[in-house]
Nucleic acid binder design. Structure first.
Lengths: 144, 144
DNA sequence: TATCATTTGAGAGACATTATTAATTGAAAA
DNA sequence: TTTTCAATTAATAATGTCTCTCAAATGATA
């Protein structure tokens, strides 16, 4: 955990931002709940246990900042709010998500396999790909 | 154009819905502005030119319906609202989108090339894939 | 035309998110 | 350590997107 906080502090300093207890607390919640795909409101509720005076707007601001610094990333799952996840390996492409249309479970896919498609796109469209987000919709093992 | 309206009428009737002037007008706007990725508010503004008394709620309702009938589909581009596009070939997987991080332009990619990845996912995760959405982020030809 | 379920428009309401502002804080300099 | 000052904060108001409610209007069928 401490190394992630150090990384946060370093990245903040690089851009002229400060490491505050609120920012630290928000990142700790996201890391502790890795794989949960928490929304801002959910993060707020958990953070308040350790940090009772934190404001909701601060959580929103912090999440925007963490996203900008590539420490977390945003998922768009169309359930009425944005959700976030911690980026373990920075600089790499994001993994894919399987979204079950029956139970709404979100499963993470570790395999990438988009190199060929990305190469074709770069050649045919003159578009330089820096990142991607991929969602597959269907039925999970339990709901099939 | 008329064949799309006929298709709409047929699909509506199948499910017990009616073809109203408002629904027709909304679909016409989406088709006429194909490739524009309009938001609901934008569709509303355009529709009002031909259909001045239409209410915003009706546009929202119609768009939900068209999405449910697979006539249009929703894009999540993270600019504060949902955007929609007409599905030319129904039943097929959605095409991919290239989103330029400099100028925010959205480019459509006609090639699919996800078969291999989808097959691996179905085998390794026991997940039945019915559809996918793919966004690539980067720099377009002009912004590179 | 009469019937009736569906659809509509208008406005209120719900919700996530952002802006505002005065007070507080972190960290570099004195 | 204290001072300084921009960055940050909490609280709250404001915004924007989208949904709900309900009486009135409409489309399809008989």
């Amino acid at each position: 955990m401490e190394k992630f906080i150090d990384n946060l502090k370093e990245k903040l300093k690089e851009k002229g931002y400060k490491l505050t207890p609120q920012r630290r607390a928000v990142l700790e919640v996201i890391i502790t709940n890795e794989g949960e795909h928490l929304s801002t409101e959910e993060i707020y509720d958990i953070v308040k246990k350790n940090c009772p005076d934190i404001g909701l707007a601060t959580v929103y601001r912090t999440i925007q900042l963490l996203d900008k610094l590539d420490i977390i990333s945003t998922l768009y799952l169309d359930d009425g709010c944005n959700r976030y996840e911690f980026n373990i390996q920075n600089g790499e492409h994001h993994h894919h998500h399987l979204i079950c249309e029956s139970c709404s479970k979100v499963i993470e896919v570790k395999i990438d396999l988009l190199e060929k498609l990305e190469e074709e796109i770069q050649v045919n469209y003159g578009f330089e790909i820096l990142d991607h987000k991929v969602q597959f919709y269907g039925k999970c093992e339990n709901c099939k």
